[in-house]
């Protein structure tokens, strides 16, 4: 069974009404996005800041309300559910955040941070069972169980991210949305956390929606990749194929912008001109056309649909 299926999801934010000509008063952070995740699979979501990847992740776990579209989690459409009805489902649907400093309550001990979820869902009513469960969770994420009485500030960034992972694992989720879980960490620590996430997936069959801006990290951890630009998915497919034979000009530029460690292959970079446009006033037609090296007149007027060009490989570009 598919863990998560998102159909034609839109998330619009109302912004202050200052309707200059051409400026709409709603920001389309997520604009008609569809994808699915299988059990035990990692789907990577890449894009630059402002492309809507975090909004998409938060909407999937219903921290934000979708404007339209469906979110089918384990077969049920949770897109219109209220908080009460969601509570049981949330057990199966967890999130890990980017900032290991901001996402843990500084006044709670590790034991309460991890144990809170157990209490809410009444998973371990007996105190000694609760304590043992917390200790085994801390052990699973590579923390010393004797640290359960410490506060978050007594840990390093990488250790805090482990606490966040333990908190998400406590309720035995089927899907964890990981929003830039390693981008605040040093490279050596980043590798530790990526390995930990992969080990946990292998042992427990958890699916991940892995949101990041670093394409090399996303390729490493994901089976499939979605590339997002200004609220729309511009390319999706198997991770290896996307990184080896990217079809969309934006994906191509993104891949060529990843600095290579091989000193001899100072590759010819595709350096995109200009900045990421404001999502408040996105360009007409294909959102990417003002920065696209191969744009044609058609791209200015007509938004390309996401088409399947090979089995499982979708691209939204008129010229592919």
């Amino acid at each position: 069974m598919i863990v998560l299926e998102v159909r034609s999801l839109r998330v619009h934010f109302a912004v202050a009404k200052r309707t200059f000509a051409g400026v709409s008063n709603s920001l389309r952070a997520v604009d008609n996005v569809s994808f699915s995740i299988l059990p035990g699979e990692t789907v990577g979501l890449v894009g630059e800041s402002g492309c809507g990847k975090t909004t998409l992740g938060r909407t999937v776990v219903k921290l934000l309300k979708p404007t339209s579209g469906q979110i089918l989690f384990e077969g049920e459409d949770i897109s219109t559910w209220g908080a009460k009805k969601l509570r049981q489902t949330r057990r199966r649907l967890q999130m890990i955040f980017q900032d290991p400093y901001g996402s843990l309550n500084p006044r709670m001990r590790v034991e309460s941070i991890v144990g809170e979820a157990l209490d809410i869902h009444r998973l371990t009513p007996k105190p000694d069972l609760r304590r043992r469960r917390i200790e085994s969770l801390l052990n699973d994420v590579g923390l010393d169980p004797s640290t359960a009485n410490k506060y978050p500030h007594q840990f390093s960034g990488g250790q805090r991210q482990r606490i966040g992972i333990a908190r998400a694992l406590a309720v035995e989720p089927a899907l964890i949305v990981c929003d830039e879980p390693v981008s605040a960490l040093d490279v050596s620590i980043q590798a530790q956390i990526i390995n930990l996430l992969q080990d946990l997936q292998r042992d427990r069959g958890i699916a991940y929606l892995f949101i990041a801006h670093d394409l090399a990290v996303v390729e490493h951890i994901s089976q499939r990749i979605l590339v997002m630009y200004l609220g729309r998915i511009v390319e999706s497919g198997e991770a290896e194929r996307i990184c080896r034979e990217p079809k969309h000009p934006y994906t191509q530029a993104l891949i060529s912008a990843v600095p290579s460690l091989d000193h001899d292959s100072r590759r010819k970079r595709i350096i995109l001109p200009g900045d990421v446009p404001s999502p408040l006033n996105p360009p007409s037609g294909c959102h990417f056309h003002p920065r696209c090296p191969i744009a044609e007149p058609k791209c200015r007027t007509e938004a390309p649909a996401l088409r399947e060009i090979q089995p499982g490989h979708h691209v939204a570009c008129h010229l592919v």
Binding site: A216, H220, S260
Partner: peptide, 17 residues
């Protein structure tokens, strides 16, 4: 150097420090 994921190098596991 080993702990950095490399694009196109489908390694199964990163060598963490």
């Amino acid at each position: 150097l080993d702990s950095v994921p490399k694009l196109g190098a489908q390694a199964n596991r990163l060598t963490a420090i």
